[in-house]
Simulated scan of single mutants.
Amino acid sequence: MDEPATRRPGVYVLAAHPDWRESRVTRLLLQQARSVPGVEVSDLYALYPDYDIDVDTEQANVQAADLLVLLHPIQWYSMPALMKLWLDEVLRYGWAYGRAGTALHGKDLWLVASTGGPETSYHPQGYNRYFFDAFLPPYEQTAALCGMRFLPPLLLHGAHRAAREELDGHAQVFRDRLASYPDWPEIAEMGSCPITDVPATDRPARQA
């Protein structure tokens, strides 16, 4: 008797770049993601040029996935504006967080990002003044609030000057990770997803 096929974990790559013509890294990684069987990919700026996000569709895409990938360049120490709007609109109270918001519990969140400045610029003596880890807490806490694990980010610094060989190697690592998820050595060493309680008193019902 044949054994039932094992379900392959779902991966949803959410990509955002305001101008793909100017992209050296994110565009290449987007192409790689589209070449991995079973990976769902959304190009936010192509899908929603008017910034009118289809919340129902996006929630369904995330809920069907085991891994949500945020793929974008770092802009002003954060994510592009449309991706921030996506978080505001899609990760709603009562769905993504709060006592009734359990849709994302047990899933993983992976940041894949690039910076224009080299790694040495993210240093107390560099012009960015902080190590890059100082800019990660908003991502980490977003994951925690939604009951997700925040996986170690995949970063490429100095995107403007990176050699083609470095870009290709980085893209291959990204593709291999997507194809092999969740069989990553570091995941085996991580704990379970956090459960964060948001008291109802912190989000009182709106008055009619």
Rank of each mutant, 00 (worst) to 15 (best):
189 E>K: 05
106 G>F: 07
17 H>N: 06
64 A>Y: 10
207 Q>C: 12
14 L>M: 12
8 R>Y: 07
79 M>N: 04
169 G>I: 13
137 P>E: 02
84 K>P: 02
96 A>R: 07
112 V>I: 11
80 P>K: 01
59 Q>N: 14
137 P>T: 03
128 N>H: 10
112 V>G: 03
46 A>F: 03
117 G>A: 14
199 P>Q: 06
110 W>V: 01
8 R>W: 13
139 Y>S: 00
74 I>W: 08
180 S>Y: 01
124 P>L: 00
86 W>C: 09
57 T>P: 03
145 L>S: 00
75 Q>A: 04
86 W>S: 02
133 D>C: 01
70 L>W: 12
157 H>Q: 04
97 Y>W: 09
55 V>I: 14
123 H>R: 09
187 I>H: 10
136 L>C: 04
75 Q>C: 07
112 V>F: 06
144 A>F: 02
67 L>A: 01
53 I>G: 04
122 Y>A: 05
196 T>L: 12
80 P>G: 01
131 F>Y: 13
207 Q>V: 08
118 P>C: 00
45 Y>M: 12
202 D>T: 08
151 L>G: 15
20 W>M: 14
107 K>C: 09
130 Y>S: 13
73 P>D: 02
193 C>Y: 09
119 E>Q: 13
54 D>I: 02
122 Y>G: 03
182 P>H: 13
130 Y>Q: 00
100 A>W: 07
127 Y>L: 05
164 R>D: 14
140 E>G: 08
41 V>E: 02
94 G>Q: 08
50 D>T: 04
110 W>N: 07
47 L>A: 12
19 D>V: 13
41 V>S: 05
56 D>Q: 14
99 R>Y: 13
171 A>Q: 06
157 H>Y: 03
95 W>M: 03
156 L>K: 14
87 L>V: 09
124 P>I: 05
193 C>I: 00
39 V>W: 00
160 H>Y: 04
24 R>A: 04
200 A>T: 07
6 T>W: 06
165 E>R: 10
38 G>R: 05
117 G>S: 15
85 L>Q: 15
146 C>E: 01
152 P>F: 11
171 A>D: 15
114 S>P: 07
7 R>H: 12
